[in-house]
Write a protein that binds this DNA or RNA. Sequence first.
DNA 1: CCCATGTTTGACAGTGGTGTCAAACATACC
DNA 2: GGTATGTTTGACACCACTGTCAAACATGGG
Lengths: 185, 185
Amino acid sequence: MAGVRQFDEQQAYAAALDVFWTKGFRATSMLDLATATGVQRGSLYHAYGGKEQLFLRLFDQFANDFLARVAEALTPSDPREALLRFFDCCIASITTGSPSRGCLSTRTAVEADPGAVEDAVRKLLDDLEELVFEALSAAGLTVERREAARLVVAHTRALAVLERVYGDPARLRETAATLVSALVR
Amino acid sequence: MAGVRQFDEQQAYAAALDVFWTKGFRATSMLDLATATGVQRGSLYHAYGGKEQLFLRLFDQFANDFLARVAEALTPSDPREALLRFFDCCIASITTGSPSRGCLSTRTAVEADPGAVEDAVRKLLDDLEELVFEALSAAGLTVERREAARLVVAHTRALAVLERVYGDPARLRETAATLVSALVR
DNA sequence: CCCATGTTTGACAGTGGTGTCAAACATACC
DNA sequence: GGTATGTTTGACACCACTGTCAAACATGGG
């Protein structure tokens, strides 16, 4: 195979993801991505087809990394402990950076119009729910296990929005702790 | 006073709000607003100064209307009943229209960058929390009253995001019901 | 009835984005 | 080393939007 890609793809992925995360899917232009990655606009079109297709690749990697970290956080068998660590993990993810970048998937879900991008977010939430569901033991919950898992995932979305509005990690942890109190007997 | 506004301001407000609600703050252009209201772009600039200032006026009206409806829903003294009606009210607001328009304040909070617009959303959430707090009696809750109010308002944000992702009102009602179960003894 | 005042209009110049393409280029393979 | 193959580059044509402005306009008050 001759004609070989001249840029480091993983490095470009990281830079591009950072742009999407910081500016949001809609607001980032191909020019932004070109500048951040150091790859010419034309090359990006050639290599990936366009903004959405590039985003989908990045998001796939991001989602896998995130799910791995979540799975790790959910290991304690005590539901209270597991859930608190789970929420800490989510809050850490959305409050890093200065100013903090917020939640990539939530922002994407809210501002993207229906299509492959929205499907990707839905899949992430479904996967998240499944992880939480598996991690929870039925005993010790104040509501049915499936419902609890859904509510927990729902609350991650609430945290994402509140991070934008109040920008206060401590407040996010409090709200999460409240939910855990209400959910664990 | 000579030189008088030629268009019906309330009618223009309604049309403009609908555009913002449907397309989102960022994605709506002054041209969109001009088309929807039947008022020339230049006139809109002249009368209101620009997109953000116009939005703030609309949002203020919207917020007042919404809070009034919420207060009405929260009248029952039984916390379970009050909260379920409260969530029904919120869900109704975000699932009307076809396709449904979603939650104006959440969408705005997530896609607007810091500034007056974000402040307006924060104020709405603070007002909402206060209404819920006042409506709840301490007795019968599984967590402290202030915390409960915050969690309830937080959950409205979760519903807004989930509406975008799953587009299923029944599912939203289920999640809300789960939260109420966990929150009311 | 006229005039002062605020409104409306369409046009203007500027900005920033899009997607495509031919030509220049780099390189793995024979 | 030459060649085929895929990549990079910068330019091109196009579009949507912004904010402003002078001139045309409508109308209430004198």
